[in-house]
Nucleic acid binder design. Structure first.
Length: 321
DNA sequence: AACTGCAGCAACCGCGTCTCT
DNA sequence: CAGAGACGCGGTTGCTGCAGT
């Protein structure tokens, strides 16, 4: 007896989400909060699998998601964290609260992997030229490490990372009473422990959902600009309806948006202001990361974090640092 | 202008883990 | 404590747009 499917395969819609579906999902989550995904399709009337709803929310509609180009700073952090944690994208994403694990994973697979490969190849060539004979590459040793027990490695990296981050945080924040947020190593798990009716850790009130309207509005803007042929099942009528929804959404957005700004204690003074409008709300982790000694605003601190020595020296092997 | 190949990204799938009863 | 259900994560797929020919 195999594992039963997460949902009935019959009558479940697949493929790209339409703006209508997004609106339905967001408005439901506005009312009920994320969680209890199993009941989302039935309660919303969406012909989607619960998994699909969760994924759509976490990867696209969730408040505070930054999309588009990765900054060099982010890029370095990803490379470093990947070397530290391996392909634990969720853990890596917890250090980049504005990015989703899927986004980071995609970026790694499409951009950074190649970049690192090229770097390694160049480095190896250089080394071989210098030595005159090929030898065991650092990547080989690091790949050997991967054969270690997964749990052992995870534990090692997490403990090491937590220690370093703790030292780092304490040295930086000795003036403030800000505690080290241990949950930063597994933000998602803590998120799970919170009640289903509460919003994600990055936004535990309605202000967060307002930002998700930002995301939808953004989505709709691009959608209005270039109607997706994949959405050809949406007739002209539905498009005019969309337009109405679009307008109402914007009005909602502007209202709630100001609310979200008010409720936000700290704003990110990031120089890569890729998104229009106010920055997203911050979680404790984000505050920890972006506060006075923000890793984004304070280059010294960012460099410190990036230069934290990895456990297995994989970053050194990457040849980027 | 038409075709082909490639890159990027959104979404799906399967499995592991956690929680609840 | 065990089993079932729900959730989360990482790997993979497939669609879309763009560049090159």
């Amino acid at each position: 007896m195999g594992r039963p499917p997460c949902c009935e395969k019959v009558g479940v819609k697949k493929g790209p989400w339409t703006p209508e579906e997004d609106i339905m999902l967001v408005s439901y989550i506005q009312d009920h909060g994320p969680g209890n995904w199993r009941s989302v399709p039935t309660n919303t009337g969406l012909l989607r699998c619960s998994k699909s709803c969760r994924l759509r929310w976490t990867n696209y509609l969730r408040p505070g998601i930054k999309r588009g180009n990765f900054t060099p700073q982010e890029e370095k952090m990803i490379i470093h964290l990947q070397a530290l944690l391996g392909n634990r994208w969720a853990a890596i994403a917890s250090y980049l609260p504005q990015r989703t694990d899927n986004d980071i994973k995609n970026y790694w697979n499409t951009h950074l992997k190649k970049k690192l490969n090229n770097n390694n190849q160049q480095q190896q060539q250089q080394e071989e030229e210098e030595r005159g004979s090929p030898s065991d590459s650092p990547t080989a040793s690091s790949s050997h490490n991967h054969s270690k027990g997964q749990w052992e490695r995870r534990l090692q990296t997490d403990i090491g990372l937590a220690k370093k981050a703790l030292c780092h945080a304490l040295s930086l924040h000795h003036n403030s009473s800000k505690p080290f947020h241990l949950h930063h190593t597994n933000q998602h798990q803590q998120q799970r422990q919170s009640s289903p009716t509460s919003a994600s850790t990055s936004s535990n009130n309605s202000s967060g959902y307002a930002s998700s309207a930002d995301n939808i509005a953004r989505l709709l803007r691009s959608w209005m600009k270039k109607p997706d042929p994949a959405h050809s099942d949406t007739t002209q009528n539905s498009k005019t309806n969309n337009h109405n929804n679009f307008d109402s959404l914007f009005s909602f957005n502007s209202d709630a948006g100001s609310q979200s700004v008010e409720s936000k204690p700290i704003t990110i003074q990031s120089n890569d202001s890729t998104e229009e409008g106010a920055p997203p709300p911050l979680s404790l982790l984000e505050k920890w990361l972006f506060d006075d000694t923000s890793i984004i605003t304070n280059t010294t601190t960012a460099a410190d974090l990036i230069n934290m020595a990895p456990i297995d020296g994989a970053v050194a092997a990457s040849g980027l640092f």
